[in-house]
């Protein structure tokens, strides 16, 4: 976080006066479990990428390449939606405490 502003320097009513600022907010801080990717079970359907509410699934050349753990909040939606291969999921959630 940059230097804290004084009250007269702030935007009216606490508005954030530009778009796309979610990228500056590290939601990964409060994650209690993380998605773990196993490419062997992945069919590249990209459901995880579509469903992730924080755009935290990283694609490389159109294929899943891992997770942005600064923004992944550990909700587990990707793992829930993942069909995997032969009913074996390509994403499983693991407790952060491990």
């Amino acid at each position: 976080m940059s230097e804290l502003k004084k009250y007269k320097e702030l935007a009216l009513g606490g508005n954030i006066e530009k778009g796309g600022t979610a990228v500056d907010f590290k939601t990964g801080d409060w994650r209690s479990s993380r998605p773990v990717y196993n490419p062997e079970n992945c069919i590249q359907c990209l459901f995880c990428w579509v469903y992730c509410p924080d755009s935290a699934v990283i694609l490389k050349d159109g294929k899943v390449a891992g997770f942005n753990l600064e923004h992944c909040k550990g909700c587990g939606i990707c793992a829930h939606e993942c069909p995997g291969k032969k009913k074996v999921k390509a994403i499983v959630m693991e407790e952060e405490v491990k």
Binding site: L4, K5, G14, N15, I16, E17, G19, G20, T21
Partner: peptide, 13 residues
């Protein structure tokens, strides 16, 4: 001019 209204302000703001 997109902007956010009603964002959270904790102990810092």
């Amino acid at each position: 001019k997109p902007f956010t209204i009603g964002a959270i302000n904790l102990t810092d703001y």
